[in-house]
Design a protein around this nucleic acid. Sequence first.
DNA 1: GGTGTTTTCTAATTTGAATTAGAAAATACT
DNA 2: AGTATTTTCTAATTCAAATTAGAAAACACC
Lengths: 213, 213
Amino acid sequence: MAGKQATLDAADAVQPDNGGSKSARTRQRILDAAAKVFREEGYAGARLADIAAAADTKAGSLYYYFASREALVEEVLDEGLDRAFGETRRRVDALSADTPTIDRLATAIRAHLETVLKLDNYTSASIRMLGHVPEPIRARHMKRQAVYGAYWRELLEAAGAAGELRDGLDLSAARMLLLGMLNWSPEWYRRGRLSPEEIADQAAAMALGGLRK
Amino acid sequence: MAGKQATLDAADAVQPDNGGSKSARTRQRILDAAAKVFREEGYAGARLADIAAAADTKAGSLYYYFASREALVEEVLDEGLDRAFGETRRRVDALSADTPTIDRLATAIRAHLETVLKLDNYTSASIRMLGHVPEPIRARHMKRQAVYGAYWRELLEAAGAAGELRDGLDLSAARMLLLGMLNWSPEWYRRGRLSPEEIADQAAAMALGGLRK
DNA sequence: GGTGTTTTCTAATTTGAATTAGAAAATACT
DNA sequence: AGTATTTTCTAATTCAAATTAGAAAACACC
């Protein structure tokens, strides 16, 4: 056996065994393939045989690394959340301490959306699949996701407390509508006329215009 | 056999055979149940046995009215689109001819979102399922949906031509982002603190604030 | 109240995909 | 080179649902 839960925290730079052993690399290759196929086909449409083919192996071999299809799904979901949250927080934290709250919000919007639009398979797959996954998996994931939701709530509340938001705005509704605007994008975005950055600019301008005083 | 394609246009008030015969009513009951279960469980999660139970019948009996699970899916998709488009156009058309284009847009936003949030099972199911449905069905539906997309494009272009929109706005991106804001709502909305109308107001204010000059 | 027709049910059957078992192949270690 | 260990493959097996067949029940019409 080789499988281990791969919790990709900052912590795993310590134990340099991730891209390390061949086994670990194969596991990663399968997970990457799963993310890709789940993003493209959705939860129901992705068969283990498709995932195996994308990872250049056979369906039966997946079980050497993952206990079940659902285990694979769950790990893709979690990794997708970690990537969106990680990238968003990283870019917001990189702002200087005196950055106005409204600009922090703009940065978060761009970071989240660019992560999705750059076809990060994990994040896109995670967003698309969550509502279609079996209940126990969804429940577990939503608990983890709540942390990211709280992060957005804080961003909005900080902007509100700084008096930068329009009067009459309901922060809960605004948060869900805003995240919806971003999260629906995997359904329509295809490489095309506008780059991810350009679309992210449009989204940030649109959202801030709608939120700010 | 009783099945017929039930294209619910305004036209079918003419032939008064829809809520009419018992057979037609049973068929409708099954379709309603399917819409409900598809909305709740998603495309993959909804089993024919669930749909049958919700329609107070047995799985085998569904085949008397529908050729297959996919036929049922497709009819729910189409009906959902018709309802959203129908309600939106109806409310926009009810505006007086001299209504500013920006207010037409606001009305469309409210109409579309209220249709979804009032838990219209067909519309919500349609929005949620589209990306997860087998390719031939999706392709056919997208062709029909393009008409509704064009309707939104026209609303936006009219507002743009009237000089009511912000400079630098990309209308295609704005349209997808706006519809995303609305279409993601079935993923999070639950009867709760805010009514559909209140949320629709928030969405309209937010969207217009982001779009208008 | 009997006969034909429509509708519904139950009990197979089919299908498609996940999963498991166990043999083979590759790899690592001495 | 020889043995043990890890990894992968193929070929069942299992499982969950959709679908079909055909018997029963309900209904309509005479």
